[in-house]
Simulated scan of single mutants.
Amino acid sequence: MPYRVTGLSVLNFGAGWERVPGDEDVAARVMIFMADRRLLFGDRHHSDERECVGSAHAIRRFLTEQIIEAKPGKTLGQRLTLLREAARNFVDRGGSDAADFRHDHLQFGLALGDLRAAFALHLAAIAEEFDLDLEYELARLVFPEDEDETEPTEA
């Protein structure tokens, strides 16, 4: 865990230190936050458009805070920026007050699929880079079950 100097005393030869969160801490916070975002994995219905856009706004705000905490120029910050961009794109596609989604349910489904695909890709990479376990719902997003894969039954 990195530390930074917060103060020096010349005559007593002392220094004050403060613990600075590292990218590992930021990555763990992101995984915890995303594991509670039903927008990323829950069943969505045509009446959920406003709530989904609101959730995407909350994700954007959270990611902005985490980007500030991440080390500049490192892959974590870049991935968080791409996640924030995916959330912004989802919001933009929904239009004001999610009106575009409410009038075009196909557009809502496509935008949601794009958002989830981007999050699956980048969250999987973050989990791999920082050796983080994925909570069940996020693991289902990253590693969706193949409906065609069923255990063969003996006749």
Rank of each mutant, 00 (worst) to 15 (best):
M34H: 07
A86G: 00
F143D: 08
V91I: 15
T64L: 14
A58Q: 07
L80S: 02
G113W: 06
L134M: 07
A70F: 08
T64C: 08
R60K: 09
A70Y: 07
L138K: 01
I126F: 05
R102A: 11
E129R: 13
L132S: 03
K71P: 13
R61C: 01
D100R: 12
S47E: 14
G14H: 10
V10M: 09
T75C: 02
D23V: 02
I59P: 00
A87I: 03
T64A: 13
I59R: 00
G95T: 10
F13H: 11
L76A: 04
E49Q: 10
H57I: 06
G113S: 12
G7E: 10
E24D: 11
R19M: 11
L76M: 06
T153F: 12
G16N: 10
R50L: 13
L82Y: 12
G113M: 08
G113P: 08
H105G: 01
I59F: 00
D36G: 07
A98E: 04
S47I: 13
A58G: 01
L123A: 03
D114S: 11
G95D: 10
A87F: 03
A120D: 00
P72K: 04
H45C: 08
D23M: 01
A155F: 15
C52T: 08
D97Q: 11
R44L: 15
D36T: 11
S9A: 09
G113C: 06
G7I: 02
V91C: 12
Q107E: 13
A155Q: 12
Q66S: 04
E154C: 08
E85D: 14
R140G: 10
H105E: 09
G77K: 00
F13T: 05
V91Q: 07
E49R: 02
I126L: 04
L134Y: 03
S55N: 05
A27R: 05
L134W: 00
E128A: 13
V142T: 02
D43A: 14
D100M: 09
L106Q: 14
D148M: 09
P2M: 09
R29D: 14
D104R: 03
I68M: 12
T64M: 13
A27G: 02
I59N: 00
P2W: 11
T150L: 14
P152G: 01
G73P: 13
L11E: 12
T153N: 00
A15P: 07
L82N: 07
V142L: 00
E149H: 10
G109W: 14
I67L: 07
A35K: 05
E18A: 08
L39K: 06
M31Y: 09
L106P: 09
A98L: 01
D131T: 15
I67Q: 12
Y136T: 13
A87V: 04
M31A: 02
G77V: 03
D43W: 15
L110P: 08
H57Q: 08
F90V: 05
A87D: 02
L123Q: 03
V30G: 01
H105V: 11
P2S: 10
E128K: 14
D104C: 05
F130G: 03
F101W: 07
R4A: 12
K71S: 14
Y3H: 10
M31K: 03
R116A: 04
S55P: 02
A87Q: 01
H122Y: 14
